[in-house]
Design a protein around this nucleic acid. Structure first.
Length: 552
DNA sequence: AAGCCTAGCGCC
DNA sequence: AGGGCGCTAGGCTT
């Protein structure tokens, strides 16, 4: 049963599958949702944008089990059908426009004036989307509908994670900053440790004290070259090649400076309140279907600060990581029986070593990453031929995706998310290069662009399908932890963090095992959901810890 | 002053 | 000549 939610001059307009409508005052909406969620068969709430509608409900203490996010599904369908995203309603000042986020407050209709009733348009769009999901065939019947459901469930989880927040110890964070950098400096000044290191770099470069603009890459390069260090940039990996005594303190300076600017005191002031970091996740924010984040750098949380992620008193963090997710996804996509054998245990890379294809785990990892990213140099390129011999199906699968991209075609993930077609400039360059009398320069440019697109589509099928697996995993964990009558979200075990192939649950200590089981079982379910009975396993490692840094 | 770009580095 | 991101600082343009 779908229940379409939309704005109405007098509050919310609800439309059910039979076209029956009901108008409820905005203030009464949360109670209505709570009531429907407690019934035996709660509806699937249909709305324009989960990120807009759900947070106020959460703040009112109301959770929703299932939804259909029109904006996210529209994005998926537009990709599949190779068309632009449709406007949600063609009226001026439409209450909900796609794909842009609504910034207006849900329960603050008056300040907006009376918005037009949108339910007919929303209900119509739902009907269109359901029909399109039905029509579109992917790897299996219903695959795209599954993706729509998973994407929408992810949006619910994202809102819940922001609502709950990641437990964060400001005290521990401040302590680690002081240990690494010294006392917090006044605005505009550098902490003691950075001052010392910068002075040390100047000494070892033999430049006048206070004359080096160490934070300016161009000036730093000039200074390094002036000291006889032959570098073209100030990238860490390039500096590491050099033997000069100034390099060590410089690298340390860069690392600590990075810590301070990205996750230092200012970050703490801005992002941590009342013991919680509340990242804003953006489901579907990446073309491949991965999530992005908006503010706070949630998906780039450096290892350096993970000890500040700390469970509440009497609670624990249950941290789960899908082991070698992407190569396993490739195994399942390609139905490579030999690689499935290599992945039978918890360590797929070791399994590849045991298959005799390569000599070391490091080679196995580099080789697989190179195969999935399109690496053409170094170690990865060296071991690729051996991987191709032993795992012909897996390696051919990504090769095929790469060739399609080079031809300008689109590719699809397991559930049917479609890669964006290359732009007009790309097509034109390609046609130009094929014409007669074209210079070698143009041909080379076209080849370069063509290969770049191939690397993109090669990676898209794997990264995108891994993102789908992760969504299914997350949805399964959420459903297992779900219990509508056990009180607010944050008194029960609940998801607090997601990082592509990693999930974290904050749980009362006595319910840690329960959460660990949910994480393991949902991973197995996700594999079956995407790939049926294919003999591919998706093991997860689960750690029950007080601090994030203790996992792995 | 504000907006955009790049370099560089963090994460997967 | 290795895929996808976000963020900050510096430095340029408008």
């Amino acid at each position: 049963m779908h229940l379409v939610v939309d704005r109405h001059p007098e509050g919310m307009l609800l439309t059910d599958d039979r076209g029956g409508t009901e108008v409820v005052p905005a203030a009464a909406f949360p109670a209505l949702v709570a009531d429907r969620e407690r019934r035996a068969d709660p509806p699937r709430w249909v709305w324009s944008d989960t990120a807009h509608w759900y947070p106020p409900l959460l703040r009112a203490g109301v959770r929703v089990e299932r939804c259909h996010d029109l904006r996210l599904v529209e994005g998926i369908l537009a990709g599949v059908e190779g068309r632009p995203v449709r406007a949600f309603a063609s009226r001026p000042r439409a209450a909900v426009a796609l794909p842009e986020r609504q910034s207006t407050a849900l329960f603050d209709l008056e300040s907006e004036g009376a918005p037009p009733a949108e339910a007919p348009a929303a209900a119509a769009l739902l009907a269109e989307q359901l029909a399109a999901l039905e029509r579109a065939s992917a790897a299996q019947p219903g695959a795209l509908a599954l993706l729509a459901a998973a994407e929408s469930a992810g949006a619910l989880a994202a809102a819940e994670m922001t609502h709950a927040g990641l437990p964060w110890s400001s005290t521990d964070h401040e302590r680690l900053l002081e240990d690494a950098l010294g006392a917090r400096p006044r605005p505009g000044e550098r902490p003691a440790r950075l001052v010392e290191l910068a002075a040390e770099v100047e000494r070892r470069l033999g430049v006048r004290p206070g004359s080096l603009a160490i934070d300016s890459p161009p000036e730093l390069v000039a200074a390094l070259r002036g000291a006889g260090i032959d570098v073209a940039s100030t990238r860490s990996w390039e500096l590491q090649q050099q033997g000069h005594p100034a390099i060590a303190p410089l690298l340390q300076y860069k690392s600590l400076s990075r810590l301070m600017t990205a996750n230092g005191w200012n970050w703490l002031d801005e992002w941590v309140r009342d013991g919680r970091f509340r990242p804003v996740f953006v489901p579907g924010g990446v073309v491949t279907g991965r999530w992005a984040s908006d503010g706070g750098g949630a998906l780039q949380l450096p290892r350096q600060v993970r000890s500040a992620v700390r469970a509440d008193e009497g609670w624990v963090l249950v941290v789960a990581d899908a082991a070698q997710l992407e190569p396993r996804i490739l195994t399942a996509l390609s139905q490579d029986a030999e690689m499935a054998r290599a992945g039978a245990g918890v360590d797929l890379y070791q399994g590849i070593v045991d298959s005799g294809a390569v000599r070391s785990r490091e080679q196995a990892k580099l080789g697989m990453l190179g195969a999935m990213y399109g690496g053409t140099t170094g170690q990865s390129a060296l071991v690729l031929p051996r991987l191709q011999r032993v795992f012909p199906r897996a390696t051919a699968y990504v090769e095929e995706a790469a060739r399609a991209g080079e031809r300008g075609e689109t590719v699809r993930t397991r559930l049917g998310r479609t890669s964006p077609a290359p732009g007009e400039a790309w097509q034109e360059r390609r046609l130009l290069a094929a014409a007669e009398g074209v210079g070698e320069g143009e041909r080379r440019d076209a080849r370069t662009a063509s290969r770049a697109q191939g690397r993109f589509t090669r990676n898209f099928v794997v990264q995108g399908t891994a993102a789908e697996w992760a969504l299914a995993w997350m949805a399964g964990v959420r459903r297992r932890l779900w219990s509508p009558d056990a009180g607010p979200l944050t008194v029960q075990p609940h998801l607090v963090f997601f990082l592509h192939d990693e999930l974290m649950v904050h749980a009362p200590a006595h319910r840690a095992e329960e959460a660990a089981t949910a994480l393991r079982e949902a991973a197995a379910d996700a594999g079956r959901l995407l790939f049926g009975t294919a003999p591919v396993t998706f093991p997860v490692t689960v750690a029950i810890v007080e601090r994030y840094s203790e996992a792995k």
